[in-house]
Amino acid sequence: MERRRSFPDVLAGGVFVLIGGAFVAGSLGYELGTPLRMGPGAFPLLVGAILAALGLAIVVKGLVAGEMISFGPIPWRAIGVIVLAVVFFGFTVRGLGFVPTSAVTALLTTLASSRVRPLTAVAVAAGLTVASTLIFVVGLQLRIPLWGPWLGF
């Protein structure tokens, strides 16, 4: 019988083992209490261990009889740009204010697509900034200043 190795299964299992293990390690730093009077660490320790065990089972299964899933290409450009755009938003929205932050975030995000033309990107970013200002600030009365203190006024 030929073994079917499945890279996605092993990767997923690995992620689960890693995260489960990290939570287990973290839980040990908190008070565990007794089985019947649990401390803050007990529940995450238990669930973390279950997750790690399930992850291990998935790895083993992936090595023996894995699911055949095509992993496909990875859109590195999109990942990088979207991460940058969202982190930029979180980092600057208070300092720069709603309008500049939204505009830059929208512009960066449009660049995630490799097929976008520069002019389209600018037009989309401008349109989205206007639309989101109208919806969130004018319409829903969101309490974010339009222009932030970093801009000096």
């Binding site: 969202v86 709603f98 995000t109 976008v116």
Partner: peptide, 30 residues
């Protein structure tokens, strides 16, 4: 789609930020 997905990302960032004006809610998205 080139208009739709930036719209989703931007609205999502604004929406999650508006939950409690906490930038961590936004970082959590990515």
């Amino acid at each position: 789609y080139q208009v739709l997905f930036p719209m989703i990302i931007l609205f999502a960032a604004i929406g999650t930020y508006s939950l409690s004006f906490n930038a961590y809610d936004v970082y959590a998205i990515v």
